Simulated scan of single mutants.
Amino acid sequence: MSEKEKLLNPDPGVCVPWQVKVDEIGEFPGNEEISKKEWEKLDDFAYNFIWFWAQR
């Protein structure tokens, strides 16, 4: 699977991969590792929230 296909079809448990967000933002101001960690936590929460409501 190519990198573009992987970004369009993210791994299970991911709504929007970090790399897609970085591409949208462009040049990143600040510490990218801190933001990446927080984005992944937020994305995980969103995925689980959607999954919970879809299973009801």
Rank of each mutant, 00 (worst) to 15 (best):
E32Q: 14
I25L: 15
G26L: 00
V20I: 14
I34F: 03
V14N: 04
W18G: 01
W53E: 05
K36P: 01
W39D: 01
V20S: 07
D23G: 07
G30P: 01
L42C: 12
D43L: 15
D43F: 15
E38I: 14
N48G: 08
N31Q: 09
Y47D: 06
R56F: 06
D44L: 14
K4Y: 13
K6V: 07
L8M: 08
Y47P: 00
S35M: 06
G26Y: 01
Q19L: 04
F45E: 04
E3H: 09
W39R: 07
K37N: 12
E5W: 12
V16W: 14
W18M: 04
F52E: 02
D11I: 15
F49K: 06
P12Q: 11
V20M: 11
D23I: 07
P29I: 06
E32V: 14
I34G: 00
K6P: 00
P10M: 06
W39N: 03
E27K: 13
V20G: 05
I50E: 05
C15P: 00
E32R: 13
V20H: 05
F52K: 03
E5T: 11
F28H: 09
I25G: 00
E24N: 03
E40F: 14
K21Y: 14
K41I: 13
E40Y: 11
K21P: 00
I25V: 15
K36F: 09
F28M: 04
E40P: 01
D23A: 15
F45H: 04
L8S: 07
D44T: 13
G13R: 08
A46C: 13
P29L: 08
K6H: 09
P29F: 07
F52H: 04
I25Y: 09
E40D: 13
E27Q: 09
E40S: 06
I34P: 00
V14H: 04
P17Q: 10
I50W: 08
W18S: 02
W39M: 06
A46V: 14
W51P: 00
F52N: 02
D44F: 08
N48L: 14
E32G: 13
K41A: 13
S2H: 09
N9F: 15
E3D: 10
S35V: 13
E3L: 04
K4D: 08
G26Q: 01
I34W: 02
D11L: 15
E32T: 11
F52I: 04
G30S: 08
K4P: 03
P10C: 12
G30I: 09
S2I: 03
A54N: 06
R56E: 05
L7F: 09
K21E: 02
W39V: 06
D11H: 14
W51E: 08
G13C: 12
D44Y: 10
V22F: 00
L7Q: 06
E27F: 02
E32A: 13
V22N: 00
G30C: 06
E3Y: 11
L7A: 03
P17F: 15
